[in-house]
Design a protein around this nucleic acid. Sequence first.
DNA 1: ATTTAGCACTCATTCACAGAGAGTGCTAAC
DNA 2: GTTAGCACTCTCTGTGAATGAGTGCTAAAT
Lengths: 346, 346
Amino acid sequence: MLTERQLFILQLLIDDYIRSAEPVGSRALSKREDVTFSSATIRNELADLEEMGFLEKTHSSSGRIPSEKGYRFYVDHLMMPPVISKEEIYNIKDLFAEKMYEVERVIQQSAKILSELTNYTAIILGPEIFDTRLKHLQIVPISKDTAVVILVANTGHVENRTITLPDGMKLSDIEKMINILNERLKDIPLVELKSKIFKEIANVLKQHIENYHQMDQILESIFNTNQSEKVFYGGKTNILTQPEFKDINKVRSILNTFEQEDIIYRLLRSEKDGIDVKIGQENNLEAIKNCSVITASYSIGGKHMGSIAVLGPTRMQYHRAISLLDYLSKDLSNALTKRYQTLNDW
Amino acid sequence: MLTERQLFILQLLIDDYIRSAEPVGSRALSKREDVTFSSATIRNELADLEEMGFLEKTHSSSGRIPSEKGYRFYVDHLMMPPVISKEEIYNIKDLFAEKMYEVERVIQQSAKILSELTNYTAIILGPEIFDTRLKHLQIVPISKDTAVVILVANTGHVENRTITLPDGMKLSDIEKMINILNERLKDIPLVELKSKIFKEIANVLKQHIENYHQMDQILESIFNTNQSEKVFYGGKTNILTQPEFKDINKVRSILNTFEQEDIIYRLLRSEKDGIDVKIGQENNLEAIKNCSVITASYSIGGKHMGSIAVLGPTRMQYHRAISLLDYLSKDLSNALTKRYQTLNDW
DNA sequence: ATTTAGCACTCATTCACAGAGAGTGCTAAC
DNA sequence: GTTAGCACTCTCTGTGAATGAGTGCTAAAT
């Protein structure tokens, strides 16, 4: 068990290191006003803390830096109460005061402001399609054998696919099908569309449509693209300002990871409600083993909708990032919920 | 005027520097088999070439590197005939053999392959909306006071906007208006929509719609967003592999520039047909003053549609990049033209 | 039993300096 | 006009010394 004094020293050291990015020595700590004991005493404590795995040295006679275990302990038990300035709160409030109807724009702006306030990279996963329901299906022919199929969801989200008609299929067949689907699929969650079609509606279609087997493929191409959520970024290159990322190769592999949306998606897809902090290797991703990721979820009417995260170096201003994220995710949820209610009490 | 031998030496030197990224000295050049004269002779020639502004030194006793003027001369007069391997041609052919109906996907894939083949960054401006014509306008209400307006173009391109009805306006009013617009705007180029509406159709609308002044705002919000073309990237971080970009700050400002689509848009929007090479400061953009940009345009049925570019260090493999770009842009034009024809002979 | 002062020791960092190597410019000979 | 030769310049590398921050340990002080 850690003594009061050890807790105190550990906290001071980590705060100092987060601020300075330099290994912290006993003398530097002992000089602080609120430290009453000598540097020798601190040295002894530091040695103990290192033995317990909370601290590390960069070389045998250097000052200490926090280990991942140290950061973990800090985040779980030691962090200072967060301070967010009024100005920052106004920044965020302003953002949501604006009338923005496209969900995507709200989210993009949130990412931007979050990255500006933290100076780290902000990542937001677009709303999951749970409880996003089909409002309308529309087909627009654009040539003799191609057409655009448009799906409109109750959230205002629009998707479209271009399809090609197989030889011999008439446009009117497709239109007929779309009509049938429109009747039967209205208000069905997008995630359930596919199974609903192939389980329940296939039979109806077979009765009405001549070449159902050809339709089959088209239905696939319309409803199959089980796209993962869209990923929004803010401050993609902020990591470059951190002194620990002078190494071009590290930076490159991080930036490349950002482009691989499936990886980011797995990284942020969190089951947990509330704030989740993953430190360094806890992320299980080589490219960001020196980074920490703080994830929160946002929701609509209490229903989990997506994730919002901050990615920075393990030497992160955790308390600041966490409080900003907490604040922003709640405001985002409120803004989206409000918007969503006007969609549903109709 | 340059002598034959000066031309030859200049070419050798630039080729060598492009390969090695190291200043090239007289001795290194004289060692080559095809060089019959001595290093002293070369030194004299190099001094002359430097005086004429084609070469520079990094310090008083270093070898020479090409100046921007040198690169310019190289590109205009000295480059070796390009060599593209069969394998690379197959790579590109494969790309366009695939059936891809969304224009955006074709373009995205082109950017990817171009960046992989050159190891630089590929940038493509999406098709300009010239000659993209409105096919269909559709309104889908999603709550009592919001609706999604969808524009479908003849190319399969789809755009959508979410609008909010002002108090007191009925949905049916909007639907009425959309119907009128649909009749009158069909096959009008997207770029002309706005002026057409406010000049010609406004009067018609005034007759049929009660609160036209309210409509006005809505029309604005639907047709105003004069969005610039979408920008597609491939190999965004490839610049990080170049030895001259070890400096994090340079990299950061380049990568940040990529995020500012309006700047990139201005950079690539080229009037010229054919291949255009801009070297270093010729780009008039501080962030990429050490980069060259090679731009080609692609077209549909001979009509200029967008730009496709490669961005790399000024020390670029110009002949390779140019030939790949030339090849790819032509194939891209063909692929899009083919696709476009099926849209129009309907 | 803690705490602290003192001290030897360890590394990283900085600096100066020397030597090597690559390259130039110039001169004089070819 | 070309080339060999040479003095000179500049970078780069390595070395060794000095500096300084910091540790660990021991013994004295509290």
